[in-house]
Amino acid sequence: MVNQDDPRVLRTRQLIREAFSDLLQKKGFDSITVKDIAQKASINRATFYAHYEDKYDLLEEITEQAFHKMYPEEVMNANEFTDEICSQLIILTYNYIVTFYKICGWDSKSIGTIVDEKIKKMLQETIGNIFLKDKTFRMEDNINTKIISAMTCSAIYGAAYSWFRDGKNDQTDLLLDIVRPYIMNSLNIYRNIDE
């Protein structure tokens, strides 16, 4: 097992990620092989396999790192699901989709499915963590939190993806004006309301 904190390991992993990203733009995911990545990174295949199981494992790591880098600090530290947090999650998700498809294009269905599922999972976890800290929600148990997080995630991701596919790239304010009230009004059903 490699020491993840060793500067040589970090450098090698960075070379692999950069080679992979470059190849994605030129070849597309489906036609990239581990041999291609290793050659581009100037390493041998055994070195690649010392760091990653396969190109899918590498893709998941890159997806996760890129998505987390885009998280505003306010979202990471949120204790309440406010209008502002909702807006930031919508824009974050939309911007990630735009960035991903600019790099990879529409032609790779397998990579799109993998990345979409990974992003949805991370978005749902983020929303769920905020709901668990938000004292204004009356969630009887973790099952409720998980289901409501999944529904909120689906609304955000579905709207952002649809907005991108419809080519409304310069109208993110309108996206927020449509999606945020829908989500926040839906969530009000689960808020503790003083009677």
Results as ranks from 00 to 15, higher is better:
Lys120Gly: 02
Leu132Thr: 11
Ile97Gln: 01
Phe67Met: 03
Asn3Leu: 06
Asp116Ala: 14
Ile91Ser: 09
Leu132Tyr: 11
Gly158Met: 09
Leu23Glu: 05
Tyr96Lys: 01
Leu123Ala: 02
Gln65Val: 12
Tyr182Val: 13
Asn95Pro: 10
Ala150Tyr: 03
Arg8Trp: 05
Val115Lys: 09
Thr82Asp: 09
Ala78Met: 07
Leu24Phe: 00
Glu84Leu: 11
Thr152Asp: 07
Arg191Thr: 03
Arg45Leu: 09
Phe67Cys: 02
Ala41Asp: 01
Arg45Cys: 09
Ile183Trp: 00
Trp106Glu: 15
Phe67Asn: 01
Ala50Tyr: 08
Thr93Asp: 00
Arg13Leu: 02
Asn192Trp: 14
Val9Gln: 02
Leu59Val: 08
Lys40Asn: 06
Ile127Val: 06
Gly28Asp: 00
Ala150His: 03
Asp57Ser: 04
Ile91Glu: 07
Ser87Arg: 13
Lys121His: 10
Phe67Arg: 01
Asp166Ala: 10
Trp163Gly: 03
Lys121Phe: 11
Ile148Gly: 07
Arg191Tyr: 03
Asp116Ile: 12
Val2Trp: 07
Ser31Asn: 00
His68Gly: 14
Leu175Lys: 05
Glu60Lys: 02
Asp30Pro: 04
Ala78Arg: 08
Ile119Met: 01
Asn44Arg: 07
Asp166Leu: 05
Ile37Ala: 08
Arg45Gln: 11
Val115Gly: 04
Leu92Cys: 07
Gln14Thr: 09
Leu123Tyr: 03
Glu61Gly: 04
Ile183Thr: 00
Asp30Met: 04
Asp177Ser: 15
Gln124Lys: 09
Thr99Phe: 14
Lys102Arg: 15
Met1His: 14
Phe48Pro: 00
Met151Glu: 05
Ser162Leu: 12
Ile37Glu: 05
Arg138Leu: 11
Asp170Gly: 07
Ala160Lys: 00
Tyr96Ser: 09
Met139Cys: 10
Trp163Tyr: 02
Tyr161Gly: 02
Ala19Met: 09
Asn129Asp: 14
Ile97Asn: 03
Arg165Phe: 06
Ala159His: 00
Ser31Gln: 00
Met70His: 12
Ile130Glu: 04
Lys121Glu: 11
Arg8Gln: 02
Lys135Ala: 10
Ile62Asp: 01
Ile114Met: 13
Phe48Arg: 03
Asp166Arg: 08
Tyr96Asn: 05
Asp83Phe: 10
Gln124Asn: 10
Pro7Lys: 02
Leu58Phe: 00
Ser42Leu: 08
Asn188Cys: 07
His68Leu: 15
Lys118Gly: 08
Gly128Gln: 08
